[in-house]
């Protein structure tokens, strides 16, 4: 079944399941779009490291969506917590950065200036630092003279 065939003769239009979630899977979602998430990715990653790793280990154990609902809720709750904190402390800087990302095809290199102010704000208020694992010498987001900018 490597090819996807749309069952156009059976269904008409897109089917959206209206059934509400059962109690064990009900949880509010973060509801953030891609650019703010990409902007905050490294902070979410470092702030929620334990929950994220726990969830991924659980997924590695069993790929069934029902298997890791509890861990998944913790991951989502942690991310929501982080997003609330970012909005409370650095909303202006964050907004400047993700709007820049929206404008520049979501490329980090095109938005180093707003990124730096955002990172400084997060570091001073939340004590979180953007760290790219395995970077040799100066990490790319801290370099001054870059070819791509």
């Amino acid at each position: 079944m490597s090819t996807f065939r749309e069952a156009s003769h059976i269904t008409t239009g897109k089917f959206v399941d209206p059934t509400p979630a059962p109690a064990e899977a009900a949880h509010p979602e973060v509801g953030t779009t891609s650019a703010p998430l990409k902007s905050a990715a490294f902070f979410i990653g470092s702030y929620c490291k334990d929950y994220n790793e726990d969830f991924m280990l659980c997924k590695d154990e069993n790929n069934d969506p029902a298997h890791c609902l509890k861990e998944g809720r913790k991951v989502t709750r942690c991310a929501m917590d982080m997003i609330t904190k970012l909005r409370e402390n650095c909303e202006k800087e964050w907004e400047a950065h993700y709007k820049c990302l929206e404008k520049h095809n979501q490329e980090y290199y095109a938005c180093r200036k707003p990124e730096r102010t955002f990172n400084e704000c997060v570091f001073s208020k939340l004590k979180l630092e953007k760290v790219i694992p395995g970077a040799s010498n100066t990490p790319i987001h801290l370099r001054e003279n870059t070819i791509y900018n």
């Binding site: 509400p20 990715a41 490294f42 929950y51 998944g72």
Partner: peptide, 23 residues
């Protein structure tokens, strides 16, 4: 790496949705 940091969050959301649909 930015995507790696976001995968658990997105996967958790997708899992809950899949679970709801399958149920």
């Amino acid at each position: 790496w930015s995507r790696i940091h976001l995968i658990p969050l997105l996967q958790a959301e997708a899992d809950r949705d899949t679970y709801r649909r399958e149920a």
